[in-house]
Design a protein around this nucleic acid. Structure first.
Lengths: 234, 234
DNA sequence: ATTATTAAATACCAATCGGTAAACAAATAC
DNA sequence: GTATTTGTTTACCGATTGGTATTTAATAAT
């Protein structure tokens, strides 16, 4: 009796820990799951799915392509991730916090020019990196997305708008810190930088190399620095 | 006998004229076509198809969407234009020589900055014009195009590359004319301008207004002008 | 009026789309 | 060993994809 209670306790504890994303292996030794064990790695398969969406966009990624890339049966995918839409959302989250995390991280740079320089140069490196699909999952999804999947479009648009707003706030701070000239419009400047970034994503998807994109990023950064900076920078 | 010969002559003449795009109405009074008359206007329907491809991309534009937009039966579309791919090529040609003709036309401006300024400001106006689908058909098709339709991808990439090369040549001329500073790299500068344009296309597809894009275009042009121009411009 | 010619409309094709119900397999609990 | 729980597999669902063969309709020539 006491044994059963303990087991139930461990099982529930296990589920809670699973939800809170803690390490499962340390727990499985305490409370083993009952049914047939899973034959795939959740995160590895999600990574594969991210790559498929990255390359083909949301609608362009067919279930059969996802199946073969994730090395999973269709029904298993649905059982594990819910639906194609839910799978995309999880893949997007992984993308934003993984390969695209440099975008938000760039905001922490001490000067506005350093923000732009880091953001665009890292974008050049990442967007044309041959070790994964070229281009940007968010930009890809923004265009390759018809009206029927409006929720995905809204999701992607929201991510872009959030980043653009954060960038504008960062530039506004730079103006108040006399890092940028007072005549610089933070909102327009943020939209310009985002525009260059999205254009670079298109270029990358069209086959531009890392070197080419880096040259574009450098030139864009120098232009902005020379026109809107008070103090001379590197 | 002689009458029949004359009629055959007119019929063949009519077909030749049709191929060479001359005015059909003036000929139809001379040699009427025999069978059931066509119930649609070739150019009007093509314009509608262009709008569909513009909005949805090549693969995103389904035949049923094209049918209802062109107000034509599917079989009629195939009879008139050949295939979906052929229809897209015709629509692309119409787009390049119509709504996107300002791009090539901008190259004729007297100075490099005037080229950039006209190109980007017209792009701002055109890309967010609500009287037709927003964004750029070429950019849209570049991203929303999977590997299976490689020919379309190549076609669109070729158009972009041609324009970029022409732009680089124009900037090279500007350097030789001492219109741009000698340190300006025409190839990179051309790629930067194309990148901004493509980024603006993404922004437009995401809902940016004409005013917002115009601000971005103006800021980008001013940056380039201030950094790479010898003589002071407006 | 009949025939020839041309175009439009209907119906259909195999293939694929996203998604699911039912059968099968592998593990633990008892 | 049997029951239970869970995951995988197979087969299937209706809808839609691009594309076509066949039938029907509308005109000119005879």
């Amino acid at each position: 009796m006491a044994h059963k209670v303990v087991n139930i306790f461990f099982t529930e504890w296990y589920n809670i820990l699973k939800i809170t994303q803690m390490n499962e292996m340390t727990i499985e030794t305490l409370a083993k799951k009952r049914g047939r064990p899973v034959a795939f790695d959740y995160e590895t398969a999600l990574e594969k799915a991210m790559h498929v969406f990255w390359q083909h966009g949301y609608e362009g990624a067919s279930m059969s392509t996802l199946m073969s890339a994730m090395n999973m049966n269709k029904a298993s995918i649905y059982a594990a991730y819910g639906s194609k839409e839910a799978l995309f959302k999880k893949a997007l989250e992984r993308y934003v916090q993984g390969p695209a995390s440099f975008l938000a991280a760039s905001l922490a740079q001490p000067t506005a020019v350093a923000v732009v320089q880091l953001m665009l140069s890292q974008a050049a490196q990442m967007l044309a990196d041959q070790s994964h699909p070229v281009g940007c999952l968010v930009t890809q999804g923004a265009l390759a997305c018809s009206a029927e999947s409006a929720e995905i479009k809204t999701l992607l648009g929201g991510y872009r708008q959030t980043l653009e707003r954060q960038l504008a706030q960062r530039f506004a701070r730079a103006v108040s810190e006399q890092d940028l000239v007072a005549t610089a419009d933070p909102v327009i400047l943020a939209k310009l930088v985002m525009t260059v970034h999205q254009g670079m994503a298109v270029q990358a998807a069209s086959g531009a190399t890392q070197a080419e994109l880096f040259n574009v990023a450098t030139m864009a950064t120098q232009c902005i620095a020379q026109v809107y900076t008070l103090k001379a920078s590197a």
